[in-house]
Simulated scan of single mutants.
Amino acid sequence: MHQVSILRSCHLIPVFGKVANRAWESGTVLNQCNKFYLNPYLRHHDFFLFRYLVDVHASRKAAEERRVRIRALGRAGR
């Protein structure tokens, strides 16, 4: 038996493009639409969490890139 745990709800907005598909209905749009925007403004906690995670990821990536450059420069000077 397959179990699913829902941690919290989220507000998804279908990516309509230039024209909204009139066949989409609220009960079936999750199966009909391929792309969605996630609304981070639904709850202040979500906004903080998404913003925090993006900032943490960016700072870790920048730090790793600096380490790689430093190692490469160190090897070039030998």
Score class of each variant (00 low, 15 high):
Ser9Asp: 14
Ala62Trp: 04
Lys18Met: 13
Leu49Arg: 10
Val19Ile: 11
Arg67Asp: 02
Leu42Lys: 13
Leu53Glu: 07
Gly17Met: 03
Ala76Leu: 09
Trp24His: 00
Ser5Asn: 14
Glu64Thr: 06
Met1Gly: 10
Ala23Gly: 10
Gln3Met: 13
Leu53Gly: 05
His11Val: 09
Tyr37Val: 04
His45Val: 11
Ala62Phe: 03
Ala63Phe: 08
Asn39Gln: 01
Glu64Tyr: 10
Lys35Glu: 10
His44Glu: 12
Ala62Gln: 02
Phe36Trp: 00
His2Lys: 12
Tyr41His: 10
Ser9Asn: 08
Arg22Ile: 10
Arg69Lys: 12
Arg67Cys: 04
Arg43Ile: 01
Arg75Val: 12
Glu64Pro: 00
Trp24Thr: 00
Arg8Val: 05
Arg51Tyr: 03
Ala63Asp: 06
Arg22Pro: 08
Ala76Glu: 06
Arg78Gln: 09
Cys10Ser: 10
His45Lys: 15
Val56Thr: 07
Tyr41Pro: 00
Ala72Thr: 07
Gln3Thr: 13
Leu73Ile: 12
Gly17Trp: 02
Asn21Tyr: 06
Ala63Trp: 07
Leu42Asp: 11
Ala58Cys: 08
Val15Tyr: 08
Leu30Arg: 05
Arg22Trp: 14
Arg78Ser: 04
Leu30Met: 03
Asn31Gly: 11
Tyr37Asp: 02
Leu7Ile: 13
Phe47Thr: 03
Arg78Phe: 08
Gly77Met: 15
Ala23Ser: 13
Leu7Arg: 12
Tyr41Met: 07
Arg8Thr: 06
Lys18Asn: 10
Ile70Leu: 08
Gln3Tyr: 14
Val54Ile: 13
Asn21Lys: 04
Leu12Phe: 04
Phe16Pro: 08
Val68Thr: 04
Leu73Lys: 09
Phe50Gly: 01
Val29Thr: 00
Ala23Asp: 11
Arg60Ile: 04
Gly27Phe: 09
Gln32Arg: 13
Arg51Ile: 02
His2Cys: 13
Val19His: 12
Glu25Gly: 14
Ala63Leu: 11
Asn34Thr: 14
Ala58Val: 01
Ala63His: 05
Val4Leu: 06
Lys61Met: 07
Arg71Cys: 12
